[in-house]
Structure formats: structure tokens, C-alpha cells
Amino acid sequence: MQEQVVRGDLHAPINSQERYPMSMSFVRLISRLLVVCLIGLPFQASAGMIGTDQAVSATQAQAARAIVLSQISRADVAGQLQSLGLTPQAAADRVAALTDVEVAKLAGQIDSLPAGANGSGLLVLILIGVLIWWLVK
């Protein structure tokens, strides 16, 4: 049996495909955990001081709601950015540059929010848009 497995790895047999999803989910779990660690680090406030974000949230209800869930949402958004093609470090760096309110808006909506692109392959759609503008103006 053991021999078969060893030989199997060398020749890439069927069972390597079966193992693939498990190792992938393990890698994904580890990278998610890594993202959480990377995100947690810059937000350790020094004892005794109250951060500016709390002062902002005292004046804005929207910011107050966002700050409550910020750590969870940040890990969530970083995980989604990773699944859309970023490395754990890049995802963490990007999330660190966002406000709590922005993170709250992104959480769970990264797939549907506008992503400015204008690929040239979409020229036909754009021409339709221009045509409609021409007709309604």
C-alpha cells in the first residue's frame, strides 16, 4: 500500500486529486488565520489612550455601528479579497488602509459593488449605453 502511494505521487494518479481539495482547504484555513493575525497587529492601541476613531464614532452614528464589528469585518473582507486573487499580505495591507465604515460597506458585498474597469471587450455594451444617452437626452 505504502509503495503504491509513493509511486502514485510520482505518477500523479487518481488519489492525488482526492487529496487536493483537503490540502487546499487546509492552506485556505491557515492563510485566513494569517490574515487575522496581520490585521490584528496594527490595531493594538496603547493602554490609557483613546483612539481618534472612537472620537469620530462619538459624533457619527454610522461610524459607531461600524467600529463595533470592525475586527470581524476586517478579517472577513480580507478573506474575500484573498479569494479574489490577492496574497494574504496584500489583502491585509489593503484592508488596513480602509475606515471601519468602508469595511462595513464592503463586507459581504465585494462581488456586487462597482469595480471600475472598462475593458475593451465591453465596447459593444458601452456603445449601447451611448446610443441610449443619445436617444433620451
Partner: peptide
């Protein structure tokens, strides 16, 4: 953002 083939507004600000 490769998976969206575009750039999100929040990330333009970030």
C-alpha cells in the same frame, strides 16, 4: 482586484 477585473471605490480611497 483580479477577481473583479476592476478597482473598488473604497480601495481607490485606501
Amino acid at each position: 482586484l483580479p477577481g473583479r477585473q476592476g478597482s473598488l471605490q473604497a480601495e481607490m480611497l485606501g
